[in-house]
């Protein structure tokens, strides 16, 4: 049997079948001039900063910038344009396709009732400047981003893993990280509590929900080889009388043998 090919750089689950001629539709990227508020904002941003692209997608303005100006742009957006809250900050892993991460900042303006998303792309080994001086909420978001993707952030006040333990190996949300964890992850609690030599005693994790232990006669019975509950695995199976393999599948009807319930009919 051949082992199926699985790409190493992206272990995310894939659809098992895709039509050869199927082309995914796209959400339209609308022109910024459609919305007056956004159009005015983008004029002001363009006057001061060099932006790569701007469009409206599903009612929200998306601005794509160079990562070096992220802090200045957010300062400008907060102080001049009234985007006074940073609602979300995280990244997307495009390492397999482009060797880059996409970092996005989701902003909200309370006075204009508008939302804006700033996006920029950085290389794998690059670091990004912290926006913690602009918005305090970036403090934890950037730590989470580092924890999940391994993106380094410059000038962060307390740069440390936040969700995973400090001695964790790997960055879980990268596409190269398997869903069930690598070896260090799978033995993490055993190594920490009992030590590595206990790995054999405790045994590996059972990740398959349909897994059944063949030798366990307490909880499971083997089909066709049923032994009494708790008996040794290799003991003789219980004889089941009612099961006779030689019996014909359909018996011929015999009036003498049968019990007739309703003779009138």
């Amino acid at each position: 049997m051949m082992r199926p090919y699985r790409p190493k750089d992206n272990v995310q689950k894939k659809a098992y079948y895709t039509d050869r001629f199927w082309i995914a539709p796209r959400i339209p990227e609308e022109d910024v001039s459609q919305d007056k508020v956004y159009a005015a904002d983008i004029e002001k941003i363009k006057a001061k900063f060099d932006i790569k692209k701007a469009y409206i997608q599903r009612g929200q303005l998306v601005v794509i910038i160079d990562p070096v100006i992220n802090k200045e742009l957010l300062f400008f957006l907060r102080d001049e344009l009234g985007y006074d809250m940073l609602m979300e900050l995280s990244a997307i892993d495009y390492l397999a396709q482009d060797g880059e991460f996409e970092v996005f900042y989701q902003l909200l303006s309370l006075s204009k009732r508008k939302r804006l998303r700033v996006k920029c792309r950085i290389k794998e080994d690059e670091a990004i400047e912290s926006v913690n001086p602009v918005f305090r909420s970036a403090d934890w978001s950037e730590r989470e981003m580092y924890d999940m993707f391994g993106i380094k952030v410059n000038n962060h006040p307390y740069f440390k893993r936040i969700l995973m333990p400090d001695d964790w190996v790997g960055y879980p949300l990268r596409k190269t990280y398997p869903l069930h964890g690598d070896e260090a992850a799978q033995w993490y609690e055993i190594d920490k509590i009992f030590g590595k030599e206990y790995r054999e005693i405790v045994g590996p994790e059972i990740r398959d929900a349909a897994w059944i232990d063949k030798t366990d006669t307490e909880q499971f019975a083997r089909y066709g080889h049923e032994v009494p509950k708790g008996a040794p695995y290799d003991s003789e199976p219980v004889k089941i009388d009612s099961f006779n393999e030689d019996a014909p599948l359909v018996e011929t009807f015999d009036l003498k043998k049968s019990k007739i319930v309703d003779r009138d009919r």
Partner: peptide, 9 residues
């Protein structure tokens, strides 16, 4: 939660 972060039992 059959994931990297959960103790399986």
């Amino acid at each position: 939660f059959n994931t990297y972060a959960t103790v399986q039992g």
